[in-house]
Simulated scan of single mutants.
Amino acid sequence: MLKPILALLLGTPLAAATAAPAALSLEDSFDAHARVITQNDEKAKATLRNSLRTADASDIADIVDELYAFENLAAGFEEPAASIISARRKTIHCLADRIEKSNSSERGIVDYHCTLPDVSAAFGAYRDAKARHRSGEQSLEGAKAFLQTYAAILRDAPDTRYEARAEFSRVGDNGPWASIDMGLLGLKLLKQLMPFQAWDERIEAEAVTAYSGIPACDLMLDAQLKFAERYDPDSPLQRGTTLQDIVAEKVRSLGPNLAEAYCRGTHDRNRAVWEGPISQEDIDQVRAE
Rank of each mutant, 00 (worst) to 15 (best):
E137P: 00
Y126V: 06
L116A: 02
L116I: 03
S120K: 03
D118I: 05
F146A: 06
K130Q: 15
H113R: 01
I109W: 11
A122W: 05
A151H: 12
Y150G: 08
H133W: 10
F123P: 02
C114Y: 07
R127L: 02
V119T: 06
S104D: 15
G142D: 10
D118A: 04
R107P: 00
G136N: 13
F146Q: 09
S139Q: 08
A122I: 05
A145N: 07
I109K: 11
A143R: 14
T115G: 08
A122V: 03
A125R: 08
R134T: 06
E137Q: 09
A121I: 04
F146V: 08
S120I: 01
K130T: 07
F146H: 09
T115W: 11
S104E: 15
A122T: 05
H133L: 11
A121S: 09
R127D: 10
A122S: 10
D128F: 05
V110K: 04
D111C: 01
L140Y: 14
A131W: 07
A121H: 04
Y112K: 02
S104Y: 13
E106C: 05
Q138C: 04
F123Q: 10
R132K: 15
V119H: 02
K144A: 12
E106R: 09
G108W: 09
S135Y: 11
R132V: 09
R134F: 03
T115F: 11
A143D: 14
H113K: 00
R134G: 00
L116V: 02
L140P: 07
I109R: 10
S104H: 13
